[in-house]
Design a protein around this nucleic acid. Structure first.
Lengths: 202, 202, 202, 202
DNA sequence: GAATAAGCGAGACGGTACGTCCTGTCTTTAC
DNA sequence: GTAAAGACAGGACGTACCGTCTCGCTTATTC
């Protein structure tokens, strides 16, 4: 074996530095955007040596991801989706909230940055699927399952496809700016996804 | 007026150089990926001075976009979507083709690169919407309109929303690698989008 | 013969352009200094195409030289050195004038630029020797010859060496800034050169 | 205080890099001449990043100067001028050596380059005066002082002026190529400077 | 007086170098 | 052995000019 690149001993790790780095990363990407974000800048803003970043994160994307995760976990509502019994209303509520969040400049740039890294880095994408998207998707599917039990959703629908249909369009429109991101659009997506495109049978 | 930054006189422009640059850009992004793509590299590969690139394109994204556009236009099928009378079958055909294309390494990296630039550059996004996505979307909507006339699609469906529902999920899954991108998935998306999520009324 | 690079037909030459170029060159080198002087800048300042400069001058140095020559010729006093019969006094007068001229910011930068080019370009140096330094040196030698006839200068002195001794030190001190350039220094040089360094014989 | 531009910590400086840079600079200017000397070229030849040059030297001239200084110091004879008791003979010896050195292609181009930079950069000129010209000039004056003590040089001669008269003409003729640079010329300069231009009194 | 040819302003071109910024590695010093 | 600090080799950035070239236009010959 040619020097297995011993993993750093995380027990000695400075929690202060870690937090400062994640905070600086999140702040800076919000200020400067993805293109102008640099490890050097993050290190300086965090009052940290560059090596401390390189020691613990394999890539800028991984760092960005952790910064996101820290944020989500810390203030995370973590809760399940609302269930008032009216599936359409509940979904519209959630999607409208998402619309609002995507309009928040505090999240806009960092999330765009994260998505960029995911697009180009399969390892990060896997991490994202496991640790961020996965849990959230599970909550969504849980709500849909409840709807199935309540007879509001077809039994034979693949829940992953359902989630893609309901939650994907918003993300697309936001990332690609193919159209305005409004509450109205959120409602239309929910209605259309639930009802389907075909005409009602007479 | 704040320094009008006179546009260069495009009548003097070298068509040879333009083509070499677009070809080099497309080839290089396919070879190296987005992260390692450099203007310097493109210039060298195209046998062109860097200034010739900076003179005519405002950003790496714009160049990438033009490279794409040139490709699409040149070999473009340009044609409308198939219309056999069976909407679901036709859509599945198109989506399956898209799946295959997204698996083609020749397009994978360049398209990821382009999408990245679009995510971060509103001006480019607008250009994309107008010149690439727009026309294609129009073709899609045309097929859907035909389906409406044939009574296969509800009259009151917003066609843009419909397009988003049908064609968006594939793109999302490809970009974010949230799941395998298969013909089966394409079929499921079409069926689910058309039929809707709700149980059939008895 | 491999394409003898036909010389341009100077009969068609635009006198307007020529003058504008020389004036712009002189002005710009005075403003910006040698290092920041560019052909492109001169062409722009003169309202002239770059090619018009490249057509008529082989190098930046040659152009600079012509600019100098034009200036000297136009306003040139051209006259001989003063001859009041008192060699030392006459030389001091001339050297003091030189000191003043070298302090004139209007001439300082351009002359430094010209000297730089001469140092590095033998062809230009030859031109300089023939067309600028030569005539002036001849006038100096003429004055010294008169002094010889008047018994104020040794008959066996090499006049070129004499000129070097009298006029060189000022130039050196100015170019290399090895000391202050004053009237007093000019006087000292003349006295010392004339009298020699040896003690008077008792 | 307007941005103190903190000086780099020279204790961390790499001696290897420093030496490689100075050597490369000296070699390259000898090969290519001043005009074609580039920081980029020096960095490449020295196997060094450009930044390492920009970090430690403020200008190309300063680097050139250090390259010279290193050379002089390393192999420097450092010694005083010869003193056989015969001032004229000793000076001729030294000047003839200088003539030979100025004909040595190994020194010609680098010295011309250095002089060019000095002419245009007062800060560098000051450095030159202090660290290179100064010490050498002191040695020259020391020899002249000895001559004064031996009664071979007038007591009231300003030694700086004397040095200028004796050593300046060679430099001038070399830089401006106003005439051939020979041993004979060196001898003539010494004789004329010592004896003066005036006829001997009967 | 029409044809032809040169000079002209303009500016795009393939290049080189600039000086800056950042990368990821390495070394030094302090804790 | 981690951390802050920062020098290092390397490489891309976007800009400025280089010297060449080609474009229409103007201006002189020359037939």
């Amino acid at each position: 074996m040619p020097a297995p690149k011993v993993a750093p001993d995380s027990s000695r790790r400075s929690e202060t530095a870690r937090r400062a780095i994640l905070a600086a990363a999140f702040d800076l990407v919000g200020e400067l955007g993805y293109a102008k974000l640099s490890i050097e800048g993050i290190a300086a803003a965090a009052g940290v040596g560059k090596q401390t970043i390189y020691r613990w994160w394999p890539s800028k994307g991984a760092l960005l991801f952790d910064a996101f995760l820290a944020l989500t976990t810390d203030g995370g509502q973590g809760g399940a989706l609302p269930d008032t019994g009216d599936l359409a209303a509940d979904l519209k509520l959630v999607l409208r909230d998402t619309v609002d969040e995507l309009h928040d400049p505090r999240y806009d740039l960092p999330m765009r940055a994260l998505h960029t890294e995911i697009v180009h880095d399969p390892a990060l994408a896997a991490d994202y699927a496991t640790r961020l998207d996965g849990p959230v998707r599970e909550l969504k599917k849980e709500r849909l399952r409840a709807a199935q039990r309540a007879g509001q959703l077809a039994e034979d629908v693949d829940l992953d496809v359902a989630v893609d249909l309901i939650f994907g369009p918003l993300l697309n429109r936001w990332l690609q700016r193919t159209g305005p991101l409004t509450h109205g659009y959120a409602d239309q997506v929910v209605d259309t996804a639930l009802r389907g495109l075909r005409p009602r049978e007479a």
